[in-house]
Design a protein around this nucleic acid. Structure first.
Lengths: 154, 154
DNA sequence: TACTTGCCTGGAGTGCACTCCAGGGTTCTA
DNA sequence: TAGAACCCTGGAGTGCACTCCAGGCAAGTA
């Protein structure tokens, strides 16, 4: 009965920075748990990414254990960024396939990134709109700590 | 076998604006499908919001059909904004409960909105970071349409 | 009046992105 | 050389936010 394997950085109280620690330099072979610590993903998720083709095949030790390399971490960094944009995993897999397919997929990759960029811009605008509403509402709460009967309007 | 009831505005090609049309003025009773058109939510989702307590009880016609009022639409607008922030539905339900509970929940509501505001700011910062990465990568694609062998790095 | 379209309910189903389990091999530390 | 801690696989389970279904009333129209 192995103890839990999770790397639970969900309820991490140290918010503010990126989830992972900095990569030690001069190293180019990492175990799955090291990568988990570095990226903030769980080992489960790392294996799952590989299964679904989001991660190019990772090197193995002579006994079959994963040994990640710096370029894998670079890829995971990019994936992490794309994930932050809200891009569906399926789309990221598609991008990974294009990369694996070779240079002739250049145009399609470019287009995918460009479209993602547009999405991000739109999302930022959306959030700023929401922020305005939130600020207005917070203002109402701030200077009128009472007479909140008609909360549902405005 | 009633025909489908969905209001599918998923693949709406008229992107750019908010999903719903503008509210006609001088009206204060709307059927569920009118509200669906106005908010971009499906009728299913509107009923579900009510079931889970995200929506205060909606007026009914003498035969039990929902008749939404302008204040309900206002509430749905706010919910829509909060949803855009990525706030979980459970938290929105919590907020709705606080509103229903009355004025003495003032402080908690305020705190909830304030925390949400922080989240939105953090999310915008995150997205801007992602945008920088995306722009860098798009730049690479743009001026070097070839020699993409080491795609996985940077 | 017949017909078509809209709306009602409770409960089941869907898609996504993980997350965990069982059962077993591997690696590190005292 | 134990024992603890780590890692492997395929497949099943979870939580969220919807989304749909079946069976049945209600409302508008020719």
């Amino acid at each position: 009965m192995t103890v839990t394997e999770t790397t639970a950085s969900r309820g991490d109280s140290c918010a503010g920075g990126p989830r992972g620690r900095r990569r030690p330099d001069g190293q180019d072979r990492y175990t799955i748990s090291e990568v988990a610590a570095l990226t903030g993903l769980t080992a489960h998720t790392l294996r799952w990414y590989e299964r679904i083709g989001l991660m190019p095949h990772v090197d193995r030790s002579h006994t079959g254990q994963r040994r990640y390399r710096n370029r894998d971490l670079d890829w995971l960094d990019l994936v992490g960024k794309l994930r932050l944009t809200g891009m569906p995993v399926a789309d990221m897999v598609r991008y990974a396939e294009l990369v694996r397919a070779g240079d002739h997929t250049y145009a399609e990759r470019f287009e995918l990134l460009r479209a993602t960029r547009e999405d991000v811009l739109a999302r930022i605008a959306e959030l700023q709109g929401t922020l305005a509403v939130l600020d207005r509402k917070i203002g109402v709460y701030a200077d009128a700590g009472h007479a909140l009967a008609s909360e549902r309007s405005s």
